[in-house]
Design a protein around this nucleic acid. Structure first.
Ligand SMILES: [Mn+2]
Ligand SMILES: [Mn+2]
Ligand SMILES: [Mn+2]
Ligand SMILES: [Mn+2]
Lengths: 220, 220
DNA sequence: GGATTTTATTTGGCATGCCAAATAAAATGT
DNA sequence: ACATTTTATTTGGCATGCCAAATAAAATCC
């Protein structure tokens, strides 16, 4: 028994919430297995347990949907994750690109009271160091309209909000060129041939490939 | 696999360190099982694993001793536990009697870097909210000489440092009569018949039974 | 020293999560 | 329609930690 029972449930629910938010493709067993980097047999077994626990619903077309209960738990886990990230950056002076893995552990600390106190201690932040919004204690998420940098208008200035990619190599790159949430970015020009962008950040001119521009999310 | 692998190892090592510090009785399988509130078969199995991992040594007389490696790991876990307790009390406004169970989870967060930063953030505290000393980052523990209140001299004043008992009912009692680490306590009289004490705390007179007095540890 | 109690150990099981390999079913392409 | 690929499912196993019950060994009592 001990502590951290049903720890992995929270990871499954988070992954399901993430996939359903994208809603690019149907969320099936394979998609979930890929997201979690686990064997499909493992995932199928666990999804059945989650179904028994009324956290997910298995649809006739084999897609996996979060129930209200599952959605709530996913959002409370995301809340914990993001608040701990704020703590690590604001109080322990971590870089915003370093905190994700640490928060993967801290998010499983069980006490809800603790995370509510943490929220107050941090001054009720609206978003985490990556620019992602923090659900409130009831699991309510206030979404802002995000635009991929790839699709912005020339000449305008935007505020970097978050990113659509979490690979370390991507985050390292962003860190190197000093792109981070809340920073201002002005769009100078677009190369129509390869869809790359010329932008200005901190008064320095920068060339961003289409692949990078696709994964940087901004708001006007 | 996932996170928190070998989580229980840290609990076993902490328990072994605690028992060996008391050194009232020999630390054998039964004693450890009692301390951890686990089945002796379970504990024997785990102790053998810890022996394989060179964390403990099984002596010919069946007592269980921490190796240097095991002692170090125990002390680093205790360090994490106590620093998180300081965090909970100093930053999240918990009562010192509420934090133990929460710290039981937080102590298993793996990053050593994190706990060192936490230490700095908290201002390198010397002891936790219960008055217990915090090991440094190398696992070095500075012990102060502790005297059970039962054994103090009449007429003198002492400083409460920590407690030799962790039962909730005991901590609740202390909380009610406002006995906590760092508070001053003056010894007025001792009843020779039942070994109870009359003391003064915060200018209020208080009667302490022998059982209570045995478990309150003070320094001059 | 023989009976009793305590401690140590073995055995078989269980729960949670994970995997690889085999098979079955469904979807897709031509 | 038929072959290929993708997805779903089954089966047998493994690792970590836990328990209850049975047995063996050691210590203690009288
Ligand atoms: Mn996680
Ligand atoms: Mn984040
Ligand atoms: Mn613990
Ligand atoms: Mn403590």
């Amino acid at each position: 028994m001990s502590h951290f029972a049903h720890l992995s449930e929270e990871n499954y629910l988070k992954a399901l919430f993430k996939l359903s938010s994208k809603q690019v493709k149907k969320v099936n067993n394979i998609a979930l297995a890929k997201e979690l980097d686990l064997n499909p047999a493992t995932v199928l077994e666990m999804v059945r347990k989650l179904s028994d626990r009324k956290m997910v619903q298995l649809m006739p077309d084999k897609t996996i949907h979060l129930t209200e209960k599952g959605r709530k738990k996913a959002l409370l886990t995301i809340r914990k994750h993001r608040l701990w990230e704020v703590f690590l950056v604001d109080k322990l002076n971590y870089q915003w690109s370093e905190v994700h893995e640490l928060a993967e552990q801290l998010e499983h600390i069980e006490s809800e009271d603790l995370v509510n106190r943490l929220d107050a201690f941090l001054g009720f932040p609206a978003s985490d160091p990556h620019g992602d919004p923090i659900p409130d204690k009831n699991g309510k998420l206030t979404q802002v309209q995000l635009i991929p940098l790839k699709e912005v208008e020339l000449g305008k200035t935007y505020i970097v909000q978050s990113f659509a990619e979490t690979a370390d190599s991507f985050l390292d790159y962003l860190s190197k060129v000093d792109i981070r949430p809340a920073i201002k970015i002005k769009i100078l020009d677009r190369n129509e041939y390869d869809q790359s962008l010329i932008v200005v950040i901190n008064k320095k001119q920068l060339h961003l490939s289409e692949k990078v521009a696709k994964n940087i999310l901004v708001k006007p």
